[in-house]
Design a protein around this nucleic acid. Structure first.
Length: 424
RNA sequence: GGAGAGAUGGUCGAGUUGGUUUAAGGCACCGGUCUUGAAAACCGGCGUGGGUUUUGCCCACCCUGGGUUCGAAUCCCAGUCUCUCCGCCA
């Protein structure tokens, strides 16, 4: 949600910024509604002031025995006018709210316009693995080593689901243990939130009302305001943890992380090269989340990116960091860096973490504030980053660590949980 | 799933036969007086959002959303959440 005051006082500036990610931006109607709204408030408030005053006088007049029947009918008429005004105000408020809540966040100054093609690779870490033999893809490796059962996954869950088995389950769980261990070491608070969330959570995160079709809805199937859905990422839960709260400035920044599976419909997004675990309907992810003051948010962003990178580096995986162009950032975010890991069989990098700064966009939607030293409350900034999603780390490990005989070396940091150096 | 109780400003808590309580009072917190300093005592301040002709005035908010009324924290309807007891249950 953008600040209407910001649009009112500088519409051209906001428009220019939004055009980096939108085709058309037109505030003409919005600004007209805004004027209407304030006129309505003024006239209604005047009427209400009069009503309050007369209502206060009535008991006294009654006591003095004065006939007030004319006054009462006059007040009845005034009361009706107030009702009409309130109704009109509700309508224009709704229009304004609908308009504002459908606008995406304003991209940061240094974020370039356009889509994916304008993404910029900031740095690449490690060396591109080279193999002296013909490599297997992760689906074959996982199947041959009996780490993942794709067939039975599809049998019991449908297309896009899999089952971790044997050492595959252990490796998956080792990854999660590794992530949790690192975040705890950095002093982050560990939350395990509900996996089923209310509509309001999706709204605050900025996923609703636009993307109700991307999530699995529970019970009613209707995308109304009473629906519940299964979370597509723990971010949706974490942003709502402090919804409608006023925090103390000295308690900021607040740093959380959570583990949840993530459930996504991914309708129509199936591509044959994304077989296996690259794009499933359910995957495991540890998510990091910060609540900060506006002054702290840039530092927090750096911290999140570095933390996500370190996790990938700890695993020894060849990867890169990209800065996304405006249209490639999700709607709530003003700036996003992706950490992408190398998948040899695809000859491409795939996202394993997306680190974003939402600035005050989500905080406005969720009414999340802090009280500053001057006693004034302001909206917090919220940031999130995966740390990490396993569903692309596992393929990267299998493929990057594979050997000529079809076995896979276990990354050093995972061995204390896996209990083996080589999977064969 | 059944029965009952409850939800008031940071916190406790009054008000629930509708109208000088259009939210008292205590505590906490902030400032001041007093004091060598502190405590105590006393004095003052102390919610959020919005509008505006902006050191002022006005409006809204007593869980949420409707309704009755000249007037609603108070009455009516619907819903949410919390607590207690019972039942069921991984």
């Amino acid at each position: 949600m953008l600040d209407i005051n910001r649009i009112r006082s500088n519409p051209e500036h906001v428009k220019e910024a939004l055009l980096k990610r939108m085709e058309h931006v037109d505030f003409t109607e919005l600004l007209q509604w805004d004027i209407e709204r304030r006129q309505l408030i003024q006239s209604t408030d005047e009427k209400k002031a009069k009503r309050n005053k007369v209502s206060g006088d009535i008991p006294r007049l009654k006591k003095e025995g004065i006939d007030i029947s004319d006054l009462l009918s006059e007040m009845k008429a005034l009361s009706d006018e107030i009702k009409e005004n309130d109704e009109a105000l509700r309508e224009v408020d709704a229009k304004i709210h609908q308009f504002l809540s459908s606008l995406p966040n304003i991209p940061a100054e240094d974020v370039v316009a356009g889509g994916k093609e304008n993404n910029q690779v900031l740095r690449t870490w490690g060396e591109k693995p080279s193999f002296g033999f013909s490599i297997k893809n992760h689906v074959d490796l996982a199947t041959d080593l009996k780490l993942v059962d794709y067939e039975r996954g599809a049998k019991i869950g449908g297309n896009g689901f899999w089952v971790y088995t044997g050492m595959g389950s252990i490796l998956e769980w080792a990854l999660l243990n590794y992530f949790v261990e690192q975040h705890l070491k950095d002093g982050y608070q560990f939350l395990l939130p509900p996996h089923i969330l209310t509509y309001q959570c999706g709204y605050t995160a900025g996923q609703f009302p636009k993307f109700t079709e991307d999530v699995y809805k529970v019970e009613t199937g209707e995308a109304n305001e009473n629906m519940q859905f299964i979370l597509p990422t723990a971010e949706t839960a974490l942003i709502n943890y402090h919804r409608n709260e006023i925090m103390k400035e000295e308690d900021l920044p607040k740093k959380y992380f959570a583990y949840t599976p993530c459930y996504r419909k991914e309708a129509g997004s199936y591509r044959s090269e994304e077989r296996g675990m690259i794009r499933g309907h359910q995957f495991n992810k540890v998510e990091m989340f910060h609540y900060t003051t506006p002054e702290q948010s840039e530092t927090a962003f750096e911290e999140l990116v570095v933390k996500a990178e370190k996790l990938v580096q700890g695993l020894g995986l060849y990867h890169r960091v990209s800065k996304l162009a405006a249209k490639d950032c999700s709607a709530s975010m003003g700036k996003t860096f992706d950490i992408e890991v190398w998948i040899p069989s695809m000859n491409d990098f795939k996202e394993v973490s997306s680190a974003s700064n939402a600035y005050d966009y989500q905080a406005r939607r969720g009414n999340i504030r802090f009280k500053g030293a001057n006693g004034k409350s302001k909206f917090v900034h919220t940031l999130n980053a995966s740390g990490l999603a396993t569903s692309r780390i596992m393929p990267a490990i299998l493929e990057q660590y594979q050997q000529a005989d079809g076995s896979v070396v276990v990354p050093e940091v995972l061995r204390k949980w896996v209990g083996k150096e080589i999977l064969r």
